[in-house]
Amino acid sequence: MKEKILPIWKKAQVVWKNYGYYISLVCLLSLFGLAAWLYRTGNHDADAVYAASAAQPVLAQETAAVSPAPTAEPEPSWRKPVQGELTVEYSPEELQWNETLSQWRTHGGVDFSADTGSVVMAAADGVISAAYKDDLMGYTVEITHSGGWVSRYACLGTLEMADPGETVKQGTTIGSVGTSALAEAADGPHLHFELLKDGRPQAPEFTD
């Protein structure tokens, strides 16, 4: 038995001596391949999660690309807030004589002379945002409109017709003409009306 095994062993030694490096390399590569295959077959779920997470930013970009652009708010059209005569023009830079205060002043709105108790109406659709008594301009109501506009009604006879937070349509009664503006008392009963765009006074332009 020993005589049969010894020649085989010697041949194996010769083969290993001549080709052992290559045999080791093949075995090593086979082991690496087997390990990689086992790793891949055991991590399908992880690959699926990774693929799903990688796809999410693409979907978000596609959604953002088709989102419609915001539309600008429509500009309101203005109706005269009271039936009366225009007595004092809008004059934000040129000085006008104020009889009550006996001084030259600018005038950030327009004045309409009317009988005490005359109906004062909303100049455009909006929401009543304030109703208060100003030290100089008396009972005052403010309405917020679309596009950053605010209309202001001063020298009113009462605040009982204005409810802050109430939505009003153009022509809705919000007050009455009075004489509550101490800074314009010499002008008699009238409505002092102002328009502001983003907080800045504007010249009123009416459609009627």
Rank of each mutant, 00 (worst) to 15 (best):
S118D: 12
D134H: 14
T172C: 09
G147N: 06
V110T: 08
S176K: 06
M137T: 14
D134Y: 08
Y132T: 09
P164K: 04
G165L: 03
C155M: 13
K133C: 10
E184F: 07
A131R: 00
G126P: 01
P164F: 04
E166M: 13
V110R: 05
M161R: 14
A130Y: 10
M137F: 14
V110I: 13
K133A: 15
E166D: 15
G171M: 08
Q170L: 12
A154P: 04
I174G: 03
S180K: 00
T140K: 07
C155P: 04
D115K: 01
T179I: 13
G178R: 02
T172A: 15
S118R: 01
Y153P: 03
D163Q: 15
G148D: 01
H145Y: 07
E142G: 14
D134W: 08
K169W: 06
D163Y: 14
S146K: 11
W149C: 04
G148A: 08
G109V: 07
A130F: 08
E166W: 10
A181D: 04
T167K: 12
M137E: 13
L136V: 11
G126I: 01
E184G: 04
A124F: 02
A123E: 01
G109M: 02
T144R: 12
V127M: 11
G148S: 05
G138Y: 01
G138M: 05
G138R: 02
H145M: 06
V119M: 09
L182M: 13
A123V: 08
T116R: 11
A114R: 02
T167E: 14
I174D: 03
V168Y: 06
G117E: 07
T140D: 02
S180H: 01
F112E: 00
A124S: 08
I174E: 02
K133H: 13
A131W: 00
V141H: 03
T158W: 04
Q170C: 15
S180V: 02
V119I: 13
V110F: 00
V150Y: 09
V141S: 05
S113N: 06
I143K: 05
T158H: 05
T116G: 14
S151E: 00
M137D: 11
G171V: 05
T172S: 12
G147I: 00
L159D: 05
V120H: 01
G126E: 00
L159Q: 03
I128Q: 03
D135E: 15
V119D: 11
D125Y: 05
G178Y: 04
D135L: 14
K169D: 08
G171T: 06
A114P: 01
E184R: 09
G157N: 04
T167W: 12
T116C: 14
L156E: 07
L182G: 13
T116F: 13
Y153V: 10
S151G: 06
D111C: 07
G165I: 01
G178V: 10
F112M: 04
Y139L: 11
E184P: 01
V110M: 06
L159H: 02
A123C: 10
E184T: 13
D111V: 13
T173N: 12
